[in-house]
């Protein structure tokens, strides 16, 4: 295998064509994911994190969503130039997806076995279902689905949320994908179940060598699961780097503020840092830095000119942040 990354997204711009105008939901975003690597994309609702992921396999809102620019190089091929038919071959096989809500990502009228086998047959629809039973059980066992033989005949509503999310994971991993996009897969789960799930995901990743893009708003998950992270705000990546570097030396004021606004469970804090205001609406056209309206460090240049990525405070090569005031601390 070559050294080049598995996924290389360059200057991706995705827009929604709305009645009110064209809304850039992903605004000139570039990042890479190496083979076997886990990239965390962190952001709030409306930051464009899910849209970025959805752009990769182009499951955008019908008729109004489109990629307006940039390249999506996956394994050397530019997915942004793919036809729908070609994309269908990539989706679910080379790139699999795990969504937030396990209750809606399984079809309620089919048994678990049916849905797992359906996924296994993607490669060759002529294979008889019987011959895949053993394989389906194996796939479920890998995701620690207890009592897999019996579960094959169960319907989704007979299972707990955590168990369903494992089945979704099993389906995602069944085709031995090179990349898995996990969009807030544990948000609907309880903490103890979340921990079980994340450990499973980590274990399977080690065995299969799949890369993962983990989309989340939870910095704790990123700190514990991911190798690298990209922080998104207002459709742009404002800071990226290895988890170690970014957490040790957060450089963008937004990242700094975010880290300081999460309450710790280890120490008593008397006053949390709060970022005032709220993210600007995506429809608003902002010439400068999107965070400027909430940033205590903002000056005129922030409001008028968009900052380019510059080396972050850790000094590491891969650590970059887009801010005019990188020298200053919040």
């Amino acid at each position: 295998m070559s050294n080049e990354p598995l996924l290389d997204v360059r200057n991706l711009t995705t827009v929604l064509d709305l009645a009110a105008g064209t809304m850039p939901v992903v605004d000139d975003v570039s990042f890479t994911v190496g083979r076997g690597e886990t990239l965390g994309i962190v952001g709030e609702s409306g930051s464009g994190k899910s849209m970025t992921a959805n752009s990769i396999i182009q499951i955008l809102p019908k008729k109004i969503g489109r990629i307006a620019g940039g390249k999506i190089l996956f394994d050397g091929r530019d997915l942004s130039q793919f036809s729908d038919a070609d994309l269908t071959k990539v989706r679910g096989r080379e790139i699999a997806m795990i969504l937030q809500d396990p209750h809606t990502s399984l079809n309620p009228v089919y048994t678990i076995g049916n849905q797992v086998i359906e996924a296994l047959r993607l490669d060759d629809p002529r294979q008889p279902k019987r011959s895949l039973l053993g394989k389906a059980i194996n796939v479920l066992k890998k995701m620690n689905v207890a009592d897999a033989e019996r579960r094959l005949h169960a319907f989704p509503h007979q299972m707990s949320g955590g168990m369903k999310q494992r089945v979704v994971g099993a389906i995602a991993f069944s085709s031995a994908p090179k990349l898995i996009i996990a969009d807030e897969p544990t948000t609907a789960l309880d903490v103890t179940i979340q921990l079980q799930y994340l450990q499973l995901l980590e274990g399977i990743q080690k065995n299969t060598g799949a890369a993962i893009i983990f989309i989340t708003h939870d910095l704790g998950i990123v700190a514990n699961l991911c190798h690298r992270l990209a922080v998104m705000y207002g459709g742009r990546i404002i800071e990226s780097g290895t988890v170690k570097d970014v957490f040790a030396a957060p450089s963008h004021p937004y990242t700094q503020a975010l880290l300081r606004s999460v309450p710790s469970i280890d120490t008593k804090v008397y006053r949390l840092y709060a970022i005032e205001g709220q993210p600007p609406p995506l429809t608003e056209e902002i010439a400068g830095c999107k965070f400027a309206s909430r940033c205590p460090l903002a000056t005129d240049v922030c409001r008028s000119h968009r900052p380019d990525p510059k080396p972050g405070r850790s000094g590491a090569v891969s650590h970059e942040a887009s801010c005019w005031h990188l020298g200053e601390t919040l």
Binding site: V191, T192, Q194, L195, Q196, L198, Q199, D218, L219, G220, I221, A223, N224, L225, F247, L259, V262, S264, I265, D266
Partner: peptide
Amino acid sequence: AALPIQKSDDKPPIV
């Protein structure tokens, strides 16, 4: 099971 931003120790989590 809570995943803190800064780990205070290296104790493995209880699963």
